[in-house]
């Protein structure tokens, strides 16, 4: 037995079994990621001549382009993020001194409940509530970019708010005494001191929300109408990459449709991986800047 009281077999690195499990978990995760990415590359190689990255979708003519879906995915994600981010910022301020305490507590409870609402339930309620509303008020079928964007924004609010709140709450606590001594009101304290200090975390919340918005499959499938074309107005129906994967249950394995699915999956994975890595860097740097 060594001086530190550890049995040699256990060492500082933990029991062998635990170590093996942890390593195999990370190995498994790595394999999954590699598998999806490689499938995408394979689709690109085998699908030469099918115009996989083009704008034309015409299975009869042998064209399986997913460019329209990439455009729709990005449009939908960015538009819902814009709305959702401002809503989250507002909620975060309401939680941290803008609203009276009872309202803040209520909002916190509400947001916690919102994190648990299944996406499919949001989609179901919206199909029968929001879609008819938009159809009657603005025309069209109601299954459009606008409907999906609104719901996607609402769905993303709790996650983003909690990320923002984590940073804002501790920064506010650190600076409150000084700010009050300087005669700043709670709103001034937030807008002049806390929010500028928390800007990295606000950005990281946005990046995280973007990843979520790009990756959501059910709301676009249920609410966006699924027409394969470039979307120009908020009332246009659109098909995103995620909706494409959930809709095309093609049986022709190895055919053009199937290859387009693989490419869509790899693209989505790349987007989301980049976003979550970026969010991780940003929040790490935010933490480092404060210490």
């Amino acid at each position: 037995m060594s001086l530190t009281g550890r049995k040699p077999s256990e060492g500082a690195r933990g029991p062998l079994l635990l170590r093996a499990l942890a390593l195999s978990v990370s190995g498994l995760l790595g394999t999954v990621i590699a598998f999806i990415l490689l499938s995408g590359v394979e689709a690109l190689v085998r699908g030469q001549g099918l115009g996989l990255l083009g704008a034309a979708w015409n299975p009869a003519g042998g064209k399986f382009g997913i460019l329209t879906m990439i455009q729709c995915s990005l449009l939908l994600a960015f538009s819902s993020l814009c709305l959702g981010w401002f809503l989250s910022l507002g909620c975060c301020c309401a939680l941290n001194g803008l609203a009276p305490r009872w309202a803040a507590r209520g909002l916190l409870g509400l947001l916690t409940m919102m994190t648990a609402v299944p996406t499919v339930v949001y989609g179901f309620a919206a199909v029968f509530l929001l879609v008819p509303l938009i159809r009657d008020a603005l025309g069209g079928t109601g299954f459009c970019w606008l409907t999906a964007g609104l719901l996607l924004a609402l769905q993303g609010v709790p996650t983003m708010t909690f990320v923002m709140d984590g940073a804002v709450r501790s920064l506010a606590a650190e600076t409150r005494l000084t700010a009050t001594a300087l005669g700043l009101s709670p709103v001034q304290h937030l807008s002049r001191v806390v929010l500028p200090l928390a800007s990295r975390s606000l950005l990281s919340a946005a990046v995280l929300g973007l990843g979520r918005a790009v990756g959501d499959a059910l709301l676009p499938t249920m609410l966006a109408g699924n027409a394969i074309r470039f979307a120009h107005s908020p009332l246009d129906s659109m098909r995103t990459l995620t909706a494409h994967i959930s809709l095309v249950l093609s049986s022709d394995i190895g055919g053009g449709e199937h290859l387009s699915l693989l490419l869509a999956g790899a693209l989505l994975l790349t987007f989301c991986a980049v976003f979550s890595l970026l969010a991780r860097r940003l929040s790490q740097r935010a933490r480092g800047a404060r210490l």
Binding site: L29, G30, V32, F35, I36, G215, S246, G265, L268, S276
Partner: peptide, 27 residues
């Protein structure tokens, strides 16, 4: 760092992509 990064990336994977992974796996 390394495992944390892997876990973070995987936490960001859209669930539909995981479904596609399952489909590809069985194929």
């Amino acid at each position: 760092d390394w495992i944390g990064e892997c876990v973070d990336v995987l936490a960001g994977i859209p669930s539909i992509v995981m479904g596609l992974f399952g489909l590809e796996l069985i194929i």
